[in-house]
Design a protein around this nucleic acid. Sequence first.
DNA 1: CTGAAAGCGCTAACAA
DNA 2: TTGTTAGCGCTTTCAG
Lengths: 337, 337
Amino acid sequence: MKIKKVTIADIANELSVSKTLVSLVLNGKGDSTSINKNTQQKVINKAKELKYIPNQVARGLRMGKTKTLGLLVADISNPFFARITRTIEHYAEKEGYSLIVCSSDEDKDREIRLINMLLNRQVDGIIMTSTLDNPDIIIQLVADKVPMVLMDRYFEGVETNYVGVDNRDASKNAIKHFIKNGHTNIGLITLTPGYISSLMDRKQGYIDAMYEADLTITEKNFLEIDYENLKNKDYSTIKSFITNSKPTSIFTTNNSIAIGCMEVLRKLKLSIPEDISLITFDDVELFKFTSPALSSIAQPIEDIGKQTVSIILEQLKTGNLINKRKVLNTKLIIRDS
Amino acid sequence: MKIKKVTIADIANELSVSKTLVSLVLNGKGDSTSINKNTQQKVINKAKELKYIPNQVARGLRMGKTKTLGLLVADISNPFFARITRTIEHYAEKEGYSLIVCSSDEDKDREIRLINMLLNRQVDGIIMTSTLDNPDIIIQLVADKVPMVLMDRYFEGVETNYVGVDNRDASKNAIKHFIKNGHTNIGLITLTPGYISSLMDRKQGYIDAMYEADLTITEKNFLEIDYENLKNKDYSTIKSFITNSKPTSIFTTNNSIAIGCMEVLRKLKLSIPEDISLITFDDVELFKFTSPALSSIAQPIEDIGKQTVSIILEQLKTGNLINKRKVLNTKLIIRDS
DNA sequence: CTGAAAGCGCTAACAA
DNA sequence: TTGTTAGCGCTTTCAG
């Protein structure tokens, strides 16, 4: 099927020079190895004429680096991750790196498979939002000196790079906003894999604020919805949570939950913010236009992507693992909800 | 930096067997080549013990296939493409394929660079939404027998695979809906690279409907907004279009334009649908919750992804290029706008 | 200034 | 039942 491929050997043969020379010239090392300008031009012309396509795979094998980064997110179709991916792609491309993108679907077995797949493919580094409950694999990666940066979620006690936001403080602020407006029965809806650091911190921020205001918290304040259910738009638990706990305000820990929540409130004919107030983590462009405009905590997506790539590139360039921790600022955007 | 890697040679040495044997066993060909069950187990154990990671790059070089697909979209951060990517990832992974994802940003030079990058990386096939005005490169790819499928956008006269929707008919229906509701001054806002097939067809559908209803169309009915401006949220041309042409209804050819449009209408204090009606191509989950709920043309995203992968896999399996054309159905969702 | 040769890790004839 | 050998296409000493 594939048409015979042109290799440097072909160019070398046609020109009766060595592969070495061709390789040197084609890699821009012609001048530094002082190869005849004339010969250089001939090589370049011939390459063009033959429509030579350098084989990155062979190159990767030889050089031990593929110029590829693995990007493992929870779900690429979530606008938060999609936008981050775009910025990561942008900054990675500047340095000649491509991205193998994959989604874990918040499934840890799947994530492990994907990490192995990335390792098989010899990616030069891995950027990931891990959904693991046990960081052993991550620790192993560090031990194996795999350049890596955790995004959005970290692991307590694991020495590696992390880029994210102060989830705890951001959530605390949101809850304080509720409290300031007289709310006392504040519900929190979060996701099931309860060990995910960002989600835990968001919950903790909630607790902090409630505690500080001397408000009591019981199990009735919390709902954990299963990722699978959320994905399948099965919002039944949200519905019963709202009807049972009757919160006057709700804090959701990510954008998908917020959407589910709006769906339920609409079905229940409860209006926002008259009946129930809503603030969510993650800002989505359209929240501005929803009815009512949704209040949210916006993450600095562009910056998260930029910092992430910059850290991984630093490791790739210096050849040393580093251990940076970048906690960026969020913005609480109060709209009409 | 990288720790010494374990190869099949290491396993072979430790066990005093040949690399061949190890390779055979590890690839599950132990039985078919009737290798001693015992030996097989020893190899497997040793591989585990040494934490052997197969090198896909070496394998790819040797076998001439990388088990990687290139996915080139206009912009991965656009929810339409993000969702398609997710489904493509899903179906590709089932067959062991990974995705190198990249965004062209509707920039043809960039797209050409990215196609070359994918070719360099020896992807086994390419799935793309091309933004090219000139299909020469695509024709060349076909000539070079690169498995490929065009998504969303095709090229007239180019014999290759395509998966998309009937843009023309879908748009025509939307406009007919406007007309049925008494609109005569209907604006169309689309994107600048006017040669993109899906966009052209959407415009043509508009023209069809207007023509059929004996409504006159002038230049004042059309606005083409530059992709860069749209991306930078520079909506000034939309604003002047609306104030000048004073349409009573607007059809936007994709979701980003619709968002820009809402932004402008809000600034202009024009309400939907009282002052201006709006229908857009592409449905976004949140349109249901915008104020007012936006009417849209929904594409069968799941199916587009599924068909796309299925076509490319068929080519990969049979080793023959095929030439399929799948035109899927859209759904006009009339909400409150 | 240019070339020969080795080898990255793997698979697949072909031998034994 | 297992091993030898020859590359895949490329880069890179080391020689000339």
